[in-house]
Amino acid sequence: MAWFKRKEKGIQTSTEEKKDTPKGLWYKSPTGKIVESEELAKNFYVSPEDDYHVRIGSKEYFEILFDDNKFKELHPNLTSKDPLRFEDTKKYVDRLKDAKAKTGLKDAVRTAVGKSKGKNLVVACMDFSFIGGSMGSVVGEKIARAIDHSIEKKIPFLMISKSGGARMMEAALSLMQLAKTSAKLAQLAEANIPYISLCTDPTTGGTTASYAMLGDINIGEPGALIGFAGPRVVKDTTGKDLPEDFQTSEFLLEHGFLDFITHRRDLKDKVNHYLDLILNQRLRA
């Protein structure tokens, strides 16, 4: 027999008296593991129980990579125009307005320079939350200028890709950003300045077909989707079942397109360790 007995049937508390759980207090990973938001942030936004790497943006990556979260943002005021007056079910200008309002960002990449373990590093980091991290004119120009900064000041360049590919609403203009950024990377290479490409979830389409695959080293985050054609397109075109780990970081490592996979907690160390080795300078602790 139960020791507790409800005196009146049903729940009698009125809605106003019920206590609310604040939103965003907990994070649930795809395998169902639950973690407190604050703990998640302390753990580099990786779910501690299953090592699931939560999708994060430039704000979090800068915080992880730059010493004391101190950095100078490069060209923060570049914004998109609508040269094609593109309209599908929605006007491109409205999409831009909504994305800006929703994310507080100006476009899908932020570029910055700052100290990482005491030495300068230029970082360009894409934001997936801004129209799927799609690459249009602004993304191309900001990356190009960040590379110019690297060349001018002789600072290594780290690109963090997180993108669905080229931005359809800028059509061929966005396609040409592949050539524009690749041309700049060729100049960076001629200047013998190291370029590290970090592929995060997801890195697909035009991003993969340009800067994401052109690093002196290409590295990936665990479990990230990395590929040229999207998995659904591959499945529909070939009519074949896809291998289980198809287009994951692990798959790319196995097929020879990544140098290594790094847990986000080790990212800062690994990047700087590589730089110390390739530049033949004293190892930083």
Partner: peptide
Amino acid sequence: YSNMGVYK
């Protein structure tokens, strides 16, 4: 190629 793109 560096000049391709339209932005503010």
